[in-house]
Design a protein around this nucleic acid. Structure first.
Lengths: 264, 264
DNA sequence: CCATAATGTGACCAGGTGGTCATATTAGTG
DNA sequence: CACTAATATGACCACCTGGTCACATTATGG
């Protein structure tokens, strides 16, 4: 018993789940409101309804606690993307009206229908299938992001804070987790898109990913934070408006801003 | 004398310019390193080489100091954009090889040459002149932004911090200053672009501005902060690489990502 | 029921914060 | 020079921070 004590201690994971939940909720709330440095341990223990000593028995210090919370975030992201991936695969397996992934992508589903409509004057696309698939998939990623924010707004806030706070403890490692991951996802998608001829191959992959990432990121940030792009206030708009915006943005990404036979 | 004292006090602006400079530099440095809340007044007065009491004689509190500094930033931005505008006007006045605006837009100048090249397979553009002008102008805005960051990296950092810090005192008003302003600039540009037929008019203006703003903003953020888009590391790249990236991004914005006769 | 081990607790610590104010210093004027 | 008004100063304040640790409380097993 005595020698185990060194390693085992009172691990956080041994606590009753409801207590874990309360602590995590308190920490997530505080970190999402104030970022890493300005977040107060005192506030967290108060909100969690435990004493400071206890918290420091579960987590050696503030940094460990924060990393723990952030890792829960990356876990959530990975789950969401995995679900998204599974949904895509399921969609590929059979036509479209499957029962797969109910709940998880009820919003993303909205993407699939409209792809081929409203494509007048720009419609002689050689290998239509794969091209539609690419931008449709991009759209689904975006909608999955929206869904994630709806589900975990505070976790997303924490992510944003890490992104733009300089002195978060393991900042680079933490971001690398989720960014590397996003590149793992976006990279292959774009590469496949180029190979299948869905997207042009005279632009370096890195640039393609950059533009895609920039646009989607900003879209999600606007949706989560509001007040960024006050002209199209994503935060306030309802599902339909949101979907319309997404479709428009995808069209621009696909066809460009220049007017060449696209005048109405 | 006594009644004036209430209003006049020892205004900051009455100080010898070099002292002003030192204080401003100290404040800008501290705020750029730590944002608003985490910035330390003690550090600022130490760096500025004055006593805390003096600082509080010039600025009633931390908030006033910060707003003062941020307003210097918006001033710098307005100056930069005004210069950029003047350069564009000067360019329109006579052919191209003028002596106007030396120094101010030495980088932006690089944009003008290459617009018409490498446009095979996509080249029957009706009103070529105005279209080239639009994307060329967008490019110049981007390069002006890069130049601004080169000149005032710390001010730009402060701006980024305000963007992503929730509890900055007058956050919305401050951002409105510089954002409204950016919309004042981008709005007319895009509108003119649509009217002149340079860019498609089947997409709402707000969406056009959104995509433009998102891409340019992210580009500048990557350039200023690094580590955002590790694949194309803008912070580390030299002038030529940077220019190449800019041109590529403009091409994508113009022509889109889809492959329609753009395969190499 | 007790002895012992494990866990919870909050007063306490040093250090830092924004902000104040009595006092020292300087500048201006007759 | 002297007297006064303007300015500079930093010790000091109350408050908050992350972190510690001696002690109280609880759980366990004999």
């Amino acid at each position: 018993m005595e020698n185990l004590q060194q390693l085992a201690r009172t691990t956080f994971s041994n606590l009753p789940p409801e207590k874990q939940e309360k602590i995590v909720a308190a920490a997530v709330g505080e970190f999402s409101r104030h970022g890493y440095k300005k977040a107060s341990i005192n506030t967290i223990v108060r909100d969690a309804g435990i004493s400071k000593g206890s918290l420091y028995q579960y987590f050696h210090n503030k940094e460990v606690l924060f990393v723990f919370i952030f890792e829960r975030f990356t876990l959530l992201v990975k789950k969401a993307v995995a679900a998204q991936g599974r949904a895509n695969v399921a969609r590929a397996m059979d036509g479209g009206s499957t029962t797969a992934e109910q709940g998880s992508s009820n919003v993303a589903r909205a993407m699939d229908g409209e792809s081929a409509t409203a494509e007048q004057g720009y419609s002689r696309i050689a290998e239509a299938g794969s091209e539609l698939d690419f931008f449709c998939q991009v759209g689904r990623v975006l909608l999955a992001g929206i869904e994630f924010i709806d589900r975990h707004p505070d976790y997303f806030q924490i992510y944003l804070r890490v992104l733009f706070e300089q002195d978060v403890p393991m900042r680079e490692k933490l971001l690398a987790q989720v960014r590397l991951f996003s590149r793992e996802y976006f990279g292959p998608l774009c590469q496949a898109g180029q190979q299948s001829g869905a997207i042009r191959n005279d632009i370096p992959l890195a640039v393609v990913i950059f533009i895609l990432d920039a646009t989607l990121d900003r879209f999600l940030q606007s949706y989560a934070q509001g007040a960024l792009d006050s002209d199209l206030d994503l935060k306030q708009s309802n599902r339909e408006e949101l979907l319309a915006q997404v479709k428009m943005i995808l069209r621009v990404l696909k066809e460009g801003l220049a007017a060449c036979g696209k005048q109405q």
